[in-house]
Design a binder for these strands. Structure first.
Lengths: 138, 138
DNA sequence: ATACGTGCAAATACTTTGCACGTCA
DNA sequence: TGACGTGCAAAGTATTTGCACGTAT
């Protein structure tokens, strides 16, 4: 993601543009589903002194506005620049997360909700082992 | 779940039978997808003094043997007596989780994995608002 | 100018672990 | 009896919050 794109995204979201926020967005685009720590690690070389709290604050602000998706997993949260892909595979050994192509079950969702519930979205999480972890010991 | 069923489940899993573990299993059966705290709260009246660590230990032991499923969500983990249902709805306001009937497209999973990955399971999490939260303010 | 964002540190969960004692098999 | 489980407390992690200072608009 270019700086200009990051700036535009922040403005559209109604957030002030700061170098740290631009850096968070670039880190989100550069790495697939990073953790907050992973994002910070990517930012520090360019902006030493950036605080982890700022990363969390930025992610929370973006998530509240629907620009970023928080993915809960047993190894902690990971973040995703929200695209239309809400289906992921997670490696049970290393926690890595990757996208999957679109899930064909969207119509099914609306036919099976318990009475009185409404659906606003969904996530599919496939669990398995990634290429790297499979090639290492078992 | 009856005491006898709980005892049988523990024996099958190769775990020692203790009153606390039986109580954890009964709590899991009595409440839909409780949190560790919720399980403890349900146990305390009958077994005052039970420790939260014991609940976590029991859940971890059962999860390791595949008798219980840990469900990660932004509001923390919830636990489920493992049945074959791995599709859930979660209320975005109160965090409640309920089961959905089986999604008929399991075959899809195996056709979309990234190269080199293997799949061991999957979960579908639909997000929305539950009946109670919908009827309260917006 | 002023509201919002930042960095630090402290606070808050939530979950795991160490240890001495008790108990199931 | 001996290994495993329990309860308590302490230790980890992960995330959020308070506050004084800085900066984007």
């Amino acid at each position: 993601m270019s700086t200009d794109e990051a700036v535009a995204l922040l403005r559209e979201a109604g957030l002030r543009v700061t170098p740290q926020r631009v850096a968070v967005l670039k880190a989100l685009a550069a790495e697939s589903h990073p953790t907050a720590e992973g994002i910070l690690a990517r930012i520090l070389p360019e902006y030493p002194g950036t605080g982890l709290a700022t990363v969390y604050n930025t992610l929370a602000a973006l998530a509240r506005r629907g620009r970023v998706l928080a993915i809960a997993s047993p190894e902690g949260r990971r973040y995703d620049l929200r695209t239309e892909a809400h289906q992921h595979v997670r490696c049970r050994r290393c926690g890595r997360v990757e996208d999957l192509p679109e899930w064909p079950g969207a119509a099914w969702v609306h036919t099976v909700l318990p009475a009185g519930w409404s659906a606003e979205g969904w996530q599919v999480m496939v669990e398995g082992l990634c290429d790297t972890c499979r090639s290492v010991a078992s």
